[in-house]
């Protein structure tokens, strides 16, 4: 790891001035489980770390029936798994319980989980988000792309968004709040969590809607409507402590036995958590049966464009969607 300066502010107002105006100047240290590994491998080399764990107002959860769930960005994944405030959000509970390992969950924060960098091995080897040959050809397309994206790859980005918790949050309609003391007004901006994730169009861009002096301060999950049913499914090589090869988080608002509206969010298939409107549309007005779940699964991958080694991910993504829909419907 390269040498760096270190500062521990205790209020969020101090952070932006300490971070500076470029990613190289300063980086936010929260749980550190991703950042320190990236720094050891020289993938990122910030000249200063701003440890935000002393900012107590960014810690903890609260739930109010009218307003929903507020999660401070510094809440650890283990604290979320132990929180009674998640009682109304069983799919979120499942996602945080299944993420990473006990040791990671004790350190890693929900804000850091949203901001973690892709696990793509080209990126982790220091070749950037869109590794190219000198004549502009994608190394991923020509190389070992077994874990690469199958959807949303039009810009030439083939990494997959790493968070398994983000798809569950997006299915619940979560919003993210971002703060910078240098921004105008209150300094806070709020956006739907789905829009926080970006597919870069060039090697210069990042995969989050975040500026170098901004920090994620909290997540807001709306109160679940009555008759909301959810289902979550990860297809993994290992039973625990593994990233999925494909996953799906499904939220169905029911009207009796029929689906009134649906959200289907897939993970590890695209550079962003992939919201499949096509899959959701097939479910509206239907009852949940193996046939309607399969129809949703097929619709979810109609636009998939596999590379030389990842065609199998289409099969797995379909399985994840089908099983998540069936779980939401109470049938599996």
């Amino acid at each position: 790891m390269r040498p760096f300066e270190y500062a521990s502010p205790n209020s969020k107002e101090q952070v932006a001035a300490l971070l500076g105006t470029s990613w190289e100047q300063g980086a936010i240290l929260a749980g550190g489980t991703d950042l320190l590994a990236l720094m050891k491998d020289d993938v990122v080399t910030p000249r200063r770390l701003v440890n935000v764990k002393g900012i107590d107002t960014l810690r903890g959860t609260s739930y109010q029936p009218g307003n929903g769930l507020r999660i401070g960005a510094l809440t650890t994944i283990a604290e979320l798994a132990d929180s009674k405030d998640l009682a109304q959000y069983p799919m979120l509970f499942e996602a945080v319980t299944e993420a990473a390992s006990p040791q990671i969950r004790n350190l890693a924060t929900i804000g850091g989980n949203m901001c973690q960098r892709p696990r793509c091995w080209y990126f982790r080897s220091g070749m950037g988000l869109m590794p190219m040959t000198k004549d502009g050809k994608s190394l991923v397309v020509a190389g070992d792309n077994r874990y690469a994206a199958i959807l949303g790859t039009q810009t030439g980005a083939y990494f997959v968004s790493p968070s398994t918790i983000a798809p569950a949050l997006i299915a619940y309609g979560a919003k993210v709040r971002i703060y910078s003391a240098k921004a105008s007004g209150s300094g806070v901006r709020e956006l739907p969590l789905g829009r926080f994730f970006i597919t870069p169009k060039s090697a210069k861009e990042r995969e989050h809607d975040l500026k170098p002096d901004e920090m994620v301060i909290e997540l807001i999950v709306p109160p679940p409507p009555q008759n909301l049913k959810t289902g979550y499914f990860e297809v993994r090589q290992k039973a625990a402590f593994d990233w999925p090869l494909a996953m799906a988080a499904v939220a169905l608002q029911m009207d009796g036995n029929t689906v009134k509206s649906a959200r289907v969010v897939m993970g590890h298939v695209a550079p962003v958590p992939w919201v499949s409107d096509e899959a959701a549309a097939t479910l509206v007005g239907k009852t949940i049966t193996p046939d309607t779940a399969m129809a949703a699964a097929n619709a979810a991958v109609t636009k998939a464009k596999p590379l030389s080694m990842n065609k199998y991910k289409i099969t797995l993504a379909k399985a994840a969607v089908k099983r998540a829909v069936l779980k939401a419907g109470g049938a599996a």
């Binding site: 240290l29 489980t33 320190l36 050891k40 390992s101 006990p102 040791q103 990671i104 004790n106 350190l107």
Partner: peptide
């Protein structure tokens, strides 16, 4: 890199990877 567990210690009574903390 916080992936194997051989460096596990307890911090405030909870298991963590000592390699993943400054």
């Amino acid at each position: 890199r916080g992936a194997c567990g051989a460096c596990t210690v307890l911090m405030d009574g909870k298991p963590v990877y000592a390699c993943a903390i400054l």
